[in-house]
């Protein structure tokens, strides 16, 4: 790959990602409305698409307010962490055979490392806000994300065993003979649930839990700093969807009548839709239920899945 191509890919990925995240705001509102028999945003532009622009403008022009009681440096730093960590994760994702930022041989581990970084933004944001709701949200976020990370890592090990590689491009290529969704159906579900928890999306939005904690860890945030948390969340959705597609649904693979990148995008969007549907239909579990579910069900299940996968691999 030439340097020019490389920069083009980086620029393209950044552009598409950021726009996707922004567009998701609109998409989510429209889809939620659709599933709730409403219209959603429909005034600004065709199908209300310009509501994204309006929202962005609003966020940009809001007062850049830091509460006087906050820890100022950390308060500013926290929202940057979430955006940076998610964006960095995208570097290892193969969008198409030639479209990826870094062909990293431990790409999967890098992804896990980066998603762990996301915890910092929540903890730091909640801590720096110096607000009891924010702190409660941050504590919940930290324990939830650290817990679910454990078996997120374990669940993808099945894929690693099958493909024999941590390199995501190689994992996709290894699926040419068959998507890992079939052999790794349990791993897929565990990864998906852990992914939802990692992005603290509904129904696992316990760190925010607006009916209990105002707005959780970002109660004190407003303007573009809130906007970064907001964008970070939608990029997180995109990331998890892309990872699911990469690990279990053959990435860019698909019949040749569409270019590989389109296949990737289509599959990713299907999972994004699933995320939105979850939000439209699921109630939020209680915090202790969430932890119990993680440690007592998903964690053993992921170990069993790893054991069986390894055994089968050995036997074959």
């Amino acid at each position: 790959m030439s340097a020019g191509h490389h920069w083009l890919v980086i620029g393209g990925v950044l552009f598409v990602l950021l726009n996707t995240a922004a567009g998701l705001i609109w998409l989510e509102r429209r889809m939620l409305a659709l599933w709730q028999d409403r219209y959603g945003p429909n005034r600004a532009g065709p199908f209300g698409i310009l509501v994204v622009l309006a929202d962005t403008l609003k966020l940009f022009f809001k007062e850049d307010w830091i509460p006087p009681f906050a820890d100022k440096v950390v308060f500013v730093f926290a929202p940057a962490v979430v955006v940076a960590s998610v964006l960095l994760s995208f570097t290892v994702i193969p969008f198409a055979p030639n479209v990826l930022v870094a062909d990293f041989n431990v790409g999967l581990l890098f992804f896990l490392a980066m998603s762990s970084m996301g915890v910092y933004s929540i903890v730091l944001g909640g801590w720096a806000s110096n607000n009891k709701y924010a702190l409660l949200g941050a504590m919940r976020g930290a324990s939830q994300m650290i817990s679910y990370e454990v078996f997120m890592g374990l669940s993808v090990m099945g894929v690693v065993i099958l493909s024999g590689s941590f390199n995501l491009r190689e994992i996709v290529e290894a699926q040419k003979s068959g998507w890992y969704i079939l052999p790794q159906i349990v791993g897929f579900f565990i990864f998906l649930i852990a992914g939802i928890a990692e992005t603290h999306r509904l129904p696992f939005d316990i760190p925010e839990a607006e009916s209990e904690l105002v707005a959780g860890f970002h109660s004190e945030y407003s303007g573009m700093k809130f906007g970064m948390f907001f964008i970070g969340e939608y990029m997180g959705i995109t990331l998890i969807s892309a990872m699911v597609v990469t690990l279990y649904f053959g990435g860019w693979l698909g019949p040749a009548f569409l270019p590989p990148v389109i296949w990737f995008v289509l599959k990713t969007f299907a999972f994004i839709m699933l995320f939105i549907l979850l939000r439209a239909s699921m109630p939020r579990p209680r915090y202790d239920q969430l932890m119990e579910y993680g440690w007592k069900i998903l964690f053993p299940l992921s170990l069993v899945n790893l054991l069986i996968t390894a055994a089968i691999k050995l036997m074959l």
Partner: peptide
């Protein structure tokens, strides 16, 4: 029941919208 409710919500896609414009 979770899956069922997801399905039922999904079916709302084909319902008439209640909003007054």
């Amino acid at each position: 029941s979770l899956l069922r409710s997801m399905w039922l919500v999904f079916l709302h896609m084909f319902h008439k919208r209640e909003t007054y414009q």
